[in-house]
Write a protein that binds this DNA or RNA. Structure first.
Lengths: 357, 357
DNA sequence: CTGTTAGCGCGTTCAC
DNA sequence: GTGAACGCGCTAACAG
């Protein structure tokens, strides 16, 4: 096969095939159930029944059909199937910030679990929450069987989904005033656990690195932490908001440390921000972690376990949570009248080494 | 709304709604083009033309139709549309190891670019490469318009895809003997760049932390590095294979350091393994990086830039690469006779601080 | 158990 | 410019 090598203007090397193999191109129409029927000498509906779960069909004809089917490489067309059964075996998954290190694990698990149940994933990776409305348009048009959302939905959006009768499960999100099926990692228990340990170890001057105001998990964790501190008689704890990024964690700790003399402990609402905070302490402030200052996180993401950080944290039981989400969704696809249900999981304490105990 | 709180055996708290709002359930059939036609007092085909790109329709009737359409909340059904136009506006994306920190960025970008073109993503996150065959079954059945694969495909699989006439673009993968459209970050240039700099700085005793044998990128990088070293008269460079994980990088460096006296420089074929190697050097071997030993990586993933690591590396131009992949795919969806083409991009050197220069 | 028939919702000729 | 009629590929009643 003839090739030509050249360099284009912007330094991109290209290799272009100048001849095309005409045989390999599939203008071959896919085999339909009619083709199979003709070849097997039966009716089209007999073919259909062969591929249906409980289709009543005689072993003899079944054999004939299957033979023709494999010979023609026949597979039932999912589109036509879905059009009539009103089941697409498609689930839409909304993920708000894929680059945030905790979500790839969540997505991978959800995908695996759904694939095991022979369901396909229609992925919507949001860059801005504002995209949701246009995404929902697509979702209606595609007749997905259900939705798993790790992105925030407002009341109108939830209402729209209900109106369309599409089952949904929220993942670590709340949904305004509607009672909506959801799985949730209980931040309250986790934050209290962390702070109790910090208090017991003698920490007295705290700061909280929170998330953006519109983050439900972030807010719950912030409030839980502050509430526990107030209970312990510690008030006026400074709060700095980040955006769940490394950089924001690093900046936050610099800001708060300068404004807070004798800062003891930094409570971050996510591991990545905790990692940023640790680096901020070490490289920007010249502090030793945990000797001079303690930093704790939340999530249990992979990098939090790396030797250079070993973040003291709460690990979300991702596997159990995603399994619950998928199961709840499937149940509601089977029976849409099922009531809303909220399953909340408690995370596990990860000792790490970023906090002094 | 009545609720009941209880604790289940395994410590999972549940909140269950015991009554259901019967009004909210959408047994309401979606509006079809016929419904709109009836309400607007026109024919169904008129409605169809209203929503078609270049449909010839009188402004007056168009107005009537649109009014009825919005009133009924009508949206063309994507399934029926696809069944007849043979265009699903669906692209399958294969990703082999979502948890590997470089891919979330790739996936997010691909998703964004496709969404911008009004195309939906059917995600297949592989846990084992062996799953591909069963995944392809699903792909046939769903009539996707195209495939972007960041997972390895063998000759038979590529042949099958060709036979089905489905355009495909490979992302950082090769495809056996077939010439297949692909985008690629040129490892050779990158590795040579890194090694030239290491040599210039006086490094002499190298080790390579490679990927698994079946990883095309991993192998290309390993070979490129070794080739450059041989050119420079450095032979018998030890190679240890990892699996692109942090742990494997850490273990690899421990193994190779023990077996190689006066080890100078560790060349890792991925950033995450480089991070593992750095931690291995620091925490397992008690070496200072980069004073005692240099470590370089490849990819330019986010965590590689974190202060505690600052990995010297080559950053893949993810944005341009994904844009190229999407563009190539779209071109081939429009015109399937387009010849195969390979676009290779060169990465940018990231100085970092994990190597002594 | 089998074949015939009637749609699922829509795009697309083709006469008018 | 418009509507009637057909068909995409399939499942689901129904009669035999």
């Amino acid at each position: 096969m003839a090739k030509s090598d050249r360099k284009s203007e912007d330094g991109i090397k290209q290799t272009v095939a100048t001849s095309v193999d005409p045989v390999a191109f599939g203008s071959v129409r896919r085999a339909t159930s009619y083709d199979v029927a003709r070849m097997a000498g039966v009716s089209q509906s007999a073919v259909s029944r062969c591929f249906a779960p409980g289709g009543s069909i005689a072993p003899a004809t079944r054999a004939k059909v299957m033979k023709a089917a494999t010979e023609l490489g026949y597979r039932p067309n999912a589109l036509a199937q879905a059009l009539i059964t009103r089941r697409t075996n498609l689930v839409a998954v909304f993920i708000s910030r894929l680059t945030n290190l905790h979500y790839p694990e969540v997505l991978a698990e959800i995908s695996r679990q759904l694939t095991d149940r022979d369901i396909r994933v229609l992925l919507f990776a949001l860059t801005a929450e504002s995209e949701i409305d246009s995404i929902l348009e697509q979702v209606w048009r595609h007749d997905v069987d259900g939705i798993i959302s790790a992105a925030r939905l407002d009341n109108d959006q939830i209402a729209g989904i209900r109106r369309h009768g599409i089952p949904i499960v929220l993942y670590n999100r709340t949904a305004g005033e509607h009672l909506t099926p959801s799985v949730w990692c209980d931040s309250t228990t986790g934050e209290r656990d962390l702070i109790d340990r910090l208090l017991a170890a003698g920490h007295r001057r705290f700061a909280v690195v929170a998330g953006p105001e519109d983050s439900a998990v972030g807010e719950e964790r912030r409030q839980a932490a502050l509430a526990r501190l107030v209970e312990a008689g510690i008030v006026d704890t400074p709060v700095v908001r980040g955006d769940f990024s490394y950089a924001s964690g690093r900046e936050a700790v610099a800001i708060v440390a300068n404004a807070t003399p004798s800062l003891d402990a930094v409570v971050c609402v996510s591991d990545v921000m905790a990692i940023g905070a640790i680096d901020g302490c070490r490289f920007d402030l010249g502090l030793r972690v945990p000797d001079d200052i303690s930093v704790v996180g939340f999530d249990g993401s992979d990098p939090a376990g790396w030797m250079s950080y070993q973040v003291t944290s709460i690990r979300q039981p991702v596997r159990r949570m995603t399994a619950a989400a998928v199961q709840m969704l499937m149940e509601r696809i089977e029976d849409p009248t099922l009531p809303a249900e909220r399953r909340s999981f408690v995370g596990a304490f990860v000792p790490g080494k970023s906090a002094r105990f």
